[in-house]
């Protein structure tokens, strides 16, 4: 009898959900291209066209190609979490996938957690690949003593960026708008956060804004343990603090405003109206 049985334990369900999201990710070529392939293309182009100059920061000097490689590794982690979720969740909502899962006994936290876990796995994997390319081609060095700080930084920050992505997915009513909003947030932020072009002597207001927004602190926190002359072995707690605050705000916003149904103006909804009944 059903009464005698227990619900399946949550952890295997969470792993199964994350596995499902990973499977979907690798089967959507456009997602793989934008998340993984495009940052590599950008990296190769920037490093092929930039001179062999050095970037000066408070702790010493970086060769520009190593600096850009590490920055783009951080950016890739953001696109795997924030941009990816902000794009895909509204699409799945318009396809009725969220509503379908809402009809099942799967706990909401397992469903959302599966998305977040998969995004963090993709982010970590892309950082690893990007750094491996950096080590092979651009003189990036990853000291063993820096790895714990790097892992903590990437896992904590990408979880926070995933929460921010869920907030955008919750706030923006339609899939087509969500994709635009996510890019409109990320791209300008990247330009002032040392991602594509190291910003030397930026206007003070932009500098303050970049440090209050989450991307620049993340780039800084990933670069610190990989610094060519003075690598740190502990995470940049101040920078992580800024990111976590944004993550908590994103989480609160997502929980309060998350919607399971397509908005009345959504594209899928419009298709349905033809045979809608009551």
């Amino acid at each position: 009898m059903t009464e005698a049985r227990q619900f399946p334990p949550s952890l295997p369900l969470l792993i199964r959900q994350a596995g499902h999201q990973l499977r979907l990710f690798v089967r959507v070529p456009v997602a793989v291209f934008f998340t993984i392939a495009l940052p590599f293309v950008v990296l190769f182009i920037i490093n092929a066209t930039s001179s062999d100059r050095l970037i000066r920061d408070p702790n010493g000097e970086w060769p520009v190609d190593a600096f850009v490689c590490v920055a783009i590794a951080a950016f890739t982690a953001v696109s795997a979490t924030f941009t990816n979720l902000a794009n895909m969740v509204p699409i799945r909502r318009e396809e009725g996938v969220l509503q379908r899962w809402r009809s099942t006994p799967l706990p909401v936290w397992v469903f959302v957690g599966g998305h977040v876990l998969a995004a963090v796995v993709i982010a970590v994997a892309s950082v690893v690949v990007m750094l491996a390319v950096g080590v092979a081609l651009y003189g990036v060095s990853v000291p063993l003593s820096s790895i714990p700080a790097l892992v903590v930084t990437v896992v904590v920050a990408t979880t926070a960026f995933a929460a921010m992505g869920m907030a955008v997915a919750a706030l923006v009513p339609t899939a087509s708008a969500a994709s635009g909003v996510a890019n409109a947030i990320v791209l300008p932020m990247a330009l002032i956060s040392n991602v594509f072009i190291p910003t030397e002597s930026p206007p003070i207001a932009l500098d303050i804004a970049a440090n209050l927004l989450p991307l620049r602190p993340f780039v800084d926190a990933v670069q610190a343990p990989l610094h060519p002359t003075d690598p740190t072995t502990v995470p940049q707690w101040g920078a992580l603090g800024v990111i976590v605050l944004w993550g908590v705000a994103g989480f609160a916003c997502a929980v309060r405003t998350f919607r399971w149904n397509a908005a009345p103006g959504g594209s899928t909804r419009r298709r349905r109206v033809a045979h809608q009944s009551g």
């Binding site: 199964r16 499902h20 499977r23 089967r27 396809e95 969220l98 809608q276």
Partner: peptide, 27 residues
């Protein structure tokens, strides 16, 4: 519940979908 919209991702197979959904029920 059979909804008016399907709500199953087009990238997976029926076998995968049923295995995934079946795993969340008690019986």
């Amino acid at each position: 519940i059979v909804l008016q919209t399907s709500g199953i991702e087009s990238e997976i197979t029926p076998r995968e979908a049923l295995t995934l959904f079946g795993a969340v029920y008690r019986n």
